[in-house]
C-alpha cells in the first residue's frame, strides 16, 4: 500500500550506487575485476602499510599483528590450531581468525591505509592482499591474486572452518546458553574472593580520588597510596 511520504527522496543513479556500493561479500558479490601480484603488493606494503603494521605484518604498534600463528597444517584443515585452548601462541593475529578472504579485500579497500582510506587502486588492493597472504604462506611468492582465482584462495584460508553460528545470540528472542537461577536464601557460593585487582593496577588508571565527585555518599580512594589495612 502506498504511503503519503513515498515521494520523499529520489532514486539513486547508477553512478551514485557505484561510488558507494563498495562492499565485497564472502560469495565475492561486489568484488571488482582486477589483479595484483605479491611483488606489487610488497611495494605497496612497504610504502603504505609497513610504517604501522611492520615489515612482516608482525607489528604490535597500532594493532594486533596481521600475520603469524598459522601453519601449513591449518591450511589443510581450515582450523587454526593455535586458537584451541592450551595453545601458547601469544597473539590472535588477523590471519589466525579470519575465515573469509573477502573480508580482508573489503576492509583493506574500504579502510586502509588507516590515515588515507579508499586511496588504493583496485589492483593495489589485490596486490597487497596477495602479499599478506604470502606472508602467511597461503599463496606462493610469485602469485597474482585476481577476481578469477580468489575463490581458490578462499579454500586455503587457515581458519576457514573456524566459525560457528550460534543463533540464540543473533536473535533477540533467542534463549541464552548460560543459565543461572534466582536463588534468594542460603545460595550455593563460596562467597570468597577468587580474583582481585593486582597491586600494580591500583593506580594504573590515575588517582581514583580525582575521578569521583567531591560530595556524596562516597569519595574516590586515594590510589596514589596503598589501601588502608
Amino acid at each position: 500500500q502506498s504511503k503519503p511520504w513515498d515521494h520523499i527522496g529520489r532514486e539513486a543513479t547508477p553512478a551514485e550506487i557505484k561510488a558507494w556500493d563498495i562492499d565485497v561479500r564472502p560469495d565475492f558479490k561486489g568484488l571488482p575485476k582486477g589483479s595484483g601480484s605479491v611483488a606489487l603488493g610488497e611495494k605497496v606494503w612497504e610504502a603504505q602499510c609497513a610504517s604501522c603494521h611492520g615489515s612482516f605484518g608482525e607489528s604490535n604498534e597500532v594493532f594486533t599483528p596481521i600475520v603469524g600463528g598459522t601453519t601449513k597444517a591449518d591450511i589443510e584443515t581450515g582450523r587454526v590450531k593455535n586458537l584451541v585452548l592450551g595453545s601458547n601462541f601469544p597473539q590472535r593475529t588477523t590471519l589466525m581468525k579470519v575465515a573469509t578472504v573477502s573480508t580482508l579485500w573489503d576492509y583493506i579497500n574500504r579502510a586502509m591505509p588507516w590515515n588515507a582510506p579508499k586511496t588504493l587502486k583496485t589492483d593495489e588492493v589485490y596486490g597487497v592482499l596477495a602479499y599478506i597472504l604470502n606472508m602467511g604462506d597461503i599463496v606462493p611468492a610469485d602469485f597474482t591474486l585476481s577476481d578469477q582465482n580468489i575463490a581458490e584462495v578462499q579454500k586455503r584460508m587457515p581458519n576457514r572452518n573456524g566459525m560457528a553460528f550460534h543463533e540464540p545470540l543473533w536473535k533477540a528472542d533467542g534463549k541464552g546458553d548460560v543459565k543461572n537461577v534466582a536463588c534468594m536464601k542460603d545460595c550455593p557460593t563460596e562467597a570468597q574472593v577468587r580474583s582481585s585487582l593486582p597491586d600494580f593496577a591500583r593506580d594504573a588508571h590515575g588517582n581514583i580520588l580525582e575521578q569521583n565527585r567531591v560530595v556524596g555518599p562516597v569519595r574516590g580512594a586515594d590510589t596514589t597510596k596503598p589501601p588502608v589495612k
Partner: peptide, 16 residues
C-alpha cells in the same frame, strides 16, 4: 569476521 567474534574453548569463534 575478525572482531566481535567470540572465541570458544574448542578454538571456534562464534560469529554474529
Amino acid at each position: 569476521a575478525v572482531h566481535y567474534i567470540d572465541l570458544m574453548p574448542d578454538g571456534t569463534h562464534r560469529q554474529y
